[in-house]
C-alpha cells in the first residue's frame, strides 16, 4: 500500500494571513449567529416593565444582523482571496472542478478507507485532504451561501420593498420557496446544517492533529504546517 504525500516538504506555509483572519472572524460571527438566531426563534422569558423601557429582542436581532453582515462580508473577502491568494486559498471553492479528474478520487477514497479504519495511514497534503476538501465545499461553502441568501431574504422582509436586501434577495427567494414561513424554516435548518458541520470539523481537526503526524490546529493560527516529531 502506497502512502502518498510523505515526500512533501515540511514545514510549509499554507494558510495565508487573510485566510486565517477570515477563519477566526467567521467562526466568531457564526457563534454569535447561532446564539442570537436561536433566541429569535425561541425568545427568552418576558422582561418586566414598560415596552418603552426595554429593547431586548431588538438588541438580539441587532446582534444577529450585525454578525450576519460580518459573516457575509468576510465570506465575500474570502472569495476575493481565492482569486489572489495561494492555491490553498482556492481549494475549498474549486473542489467540484478537481472532482472531474479521475486521479483526484484516489486520495479521496484512501482517506475514506483510513477513516473507516481500513487503512492505517492517511495521505499527506499541504492543505486539506480530499475528503475534507469535499466536505468544506458541500457543507461549509454551500451551507454558507444558502444561509447568506436566505438570511438576507428574511432581513429584506423587515427593511421592506425598495431596500437592497429586498431587491436582491427577498423578491425572488420567497416566491421560490413558496412563502415566508418556509424560508424561516429552511434558514433554521441551515443553521443546524452548519452546526453539524462544525461538530464534525472540530472533531477531525483535533483528531488529525493527534493522529496524522502533521500540525492542524496550530496551522490555522500560524499559517505553517509541519511534521510533528515522532
Amino acid at each position: 500500500m502506497s502512502i502518498e504525500g510523505r515526500d512533501l516538504k515540511f514545514p510549509a506555509y499554507v494558510w495565508q494571513a487573510p485566510v486565517r483572519i477570515w477563519h477566526w472572524l467567521m467562526a466568531l460571527a457564526m457563534v454569535v449567529l447561532w446564539g442570537t438566531g436561536y433566541f429569535i426563534g425561541a425568545p427568552l422569558p418576558s422582561v418586566p416593565g414598560e415596552a418603552s423601557e426595554n429593547y431586548l429582542m431588538g438588541y438580539i436581532r441587532f446582534a444577529h444582523f450585525a454578525a450576519a453582515y460580518v459573516f457575509a462580508i468576510a465570506f465575500l473577502g474570502r472569495i476575493y482571496w481565492a482569486f489572489v491568494g495561494n492555491k490553498h486559498a482556492r481549494e475549498i471553492f474549486l473542489v467540484p472542478l478537481y472532482m472531474l479528474k479521475p486521479a483526484w478520487w484516489g486520495s479521496f477514497f484512501r482517506t475514506v478507507a483510513h477513516y473507516a479504519f481500513l487503512r492505517r495511514h492517511a495521505d499527506w497534503h499541504y492543505g486539506h485532504n480530499h475528503l475534507a476538501m469535499a466536505a468544506m465545499f458541500g457543507m461549509y461553502v454551500l451551507g454558507t451561501v444558502f444561509m447568506i441568501v436566505t438570511g438576507f431574504a428574511l432581513y429584506g422582509e423587515g427593511t421592506l420593498k425598495g431596500s437592497w436586501a429586498n431587491n436582491l434577495f427577498t423578491s425572488w427567494v420567497i416566491p421560490m420557496m413558496g412563502d415566508s414561513q418556509n424560508v424561516h424554516t429552511w434558514h433554521h435548518l441551515g443553521a443546524w446544517y452548519l452546526f453539524w458541520f462544525t461538530v464534525v470539523h472540530l472533531y477531525f481537526v483535533i483528531r488529525e492533529d493527534i493522529v496524522s503526524g502533521l500540525t492542524v490546529v496550530s496551522s490555522m493560527i500560524s499559517g505553517w504546517r509541519d511534521v510533528k516529531n515522532g
Partner: peptide, 24 residues
Amino acid sequence: NADKVGLVAAGVVGAAVVAHAAVT
C-alpha cells in the same frame, strides 16, 4: 420542527464522533 430535527441530528453526529474517536 427544525429545532427537534437539528438537535436529534446533532446528537447523532456527536455520538458518531465520540464512537469514531474511541475506535481511533
